[in-house]
Amino acid sequence: MNRLTAAPSPSVRVRAPGKLNLSLRVGPVEDDGYHPLVTVFQAVALYEEVTATEVPEGTGIALTVDGPHADQVPLDASNLAWRAAELLAEHVGVGADVALHLAKGVPVAGGMAGGSADAAATLAACDALWATGLSRDDLVGLAARLGSDVPFALVGHTAVGTGRGHLLTPAMTRGEFHWAFATQAEGLSTPAVYGQFDARTGGRAPAVDPADDTDLMHALRAGDPVALGLALHNDLQDAAIDLRPELERTLEIAQNGGALGTLVSGSGPSVAALARSRQHALAIAATWTAEGAADSVWCTTGPAGGARVL
């Protein structure tokens, strides 16, 4: 007797990278509540994977998550991936009917834009699943409506971000850079860090200027990790340390371990250390673990490519 089984529902799987801000320069808050930024993004080979699966019309959006700290990820419309599916559906005039599964590979709430990578991957996955045929520029435009880091997760590699960080210009780089990351189980609120930055500057931070990162851009073009380490910069670092003083020790341990450069990643609380090699990155990570200076450690390389269908 032949047994008939239902064909699996069509699905699309996309991965998108986390990021590091090699430089983050923050101007004074403007009337719209945002700070003008000049930032140099580098995508790193830690990835979010989103699988979008077809569901019957009228079903709506369903969201599931697995991976490290998945219990901290919301499963409702506050999730950026959910919002990305809704935005794309509204933009192209189709029903927002899809099952999304997020496999976390970027530290949660660590200043490395894992949620933004989820949103970017969801845009690309739903575009393919629904055959909407949008161009990459169209998707980048939608991404900018979701958050300032989402466009970069689509394009990846290394880029200069201006405006709120969403206006991207590709940056020339040579070679591969080795990174170690120390992450904390408890996240750090981005609005709180910006609020502390405003308190430190009295709302009178200097205007941002891309020319301030000239040395960093030269280091990237030369593929020179020593020069890059010296040029790393984050205007939010002191504000993040004010809120989480233990980050200073995490930075010092990496510096004492010979890191070429260290900084808080974005608004924190992850700490990044630039290493000479993969083995050196592993050694820095091991020291963080031995000293109890991180809840988890990650070693990877950059730059990495942007969102792509697997």
Rank of each mutant, 00 (worst) to 15 (best):
G223C: 10
P225Q: 05
P225K: 03
V226Y: 10
V226W: 10
A227I: 09
A227F: 10
L228D: 09
L228V: 06
G229M: 04
G229C: 06
L230W: 05
L232G: 08
H233I: 05
L236R: 07
L236A: 03
L236S: 03
Q237R: 11
A239T: 01
A240C: 01
A240P: 04
I241V: 13
I241E: 04
D242I: 00
L243S: 04
L243C: 05
R244F: 01
R244K: 12
P245S: 00
E246Q: 12
L247V: 04
L247W: 01
E248Y: 01
E248R: 15
R249Q: 09
R249D: 08
R249M: 00
T250Y: 11
L251V: 14
E252G: 07
E252N: 11
I253E: 06
I253M: 04
A254G: 14
A254V: 08
A254D: 06
Q255G: 13
G258E: 04
A259W: 03
A259G: 06
L260M: 09
L260S: 09
G261Y: 01
T262A: 00
L263T: 02
G268C: 10
S270N: 15
S270A: 15
S270K: 14
S270L: 14
A272R: 09
A273I: 13
A275V: 05
R276Q: 14
S277I: 03
S277Q: 09
R278K: 08
H280S: 11
H280Y: 11
H280K: 12
A281N: 13
L282F: 11
L282Q: 15
L282D: 15
L282I: 12
A283P: 14
I284N: 13
I284E: 12
A285L: 14
A286Q: 15
T289R: 15
T289S: 14
A290Y: 14
E291Q: 15
G292T: 07
A293T: 04
A293P: 07
A294W: 02
A294P: 07
A294M: 03
A294H: 03
A294F: 01
D295S: 12
S296L: 00
V297A: 01
W298I: 08
C299A: 10
T300C: 15
G302Y: 02
G302T: 02
P303C: 06
A304T: 11
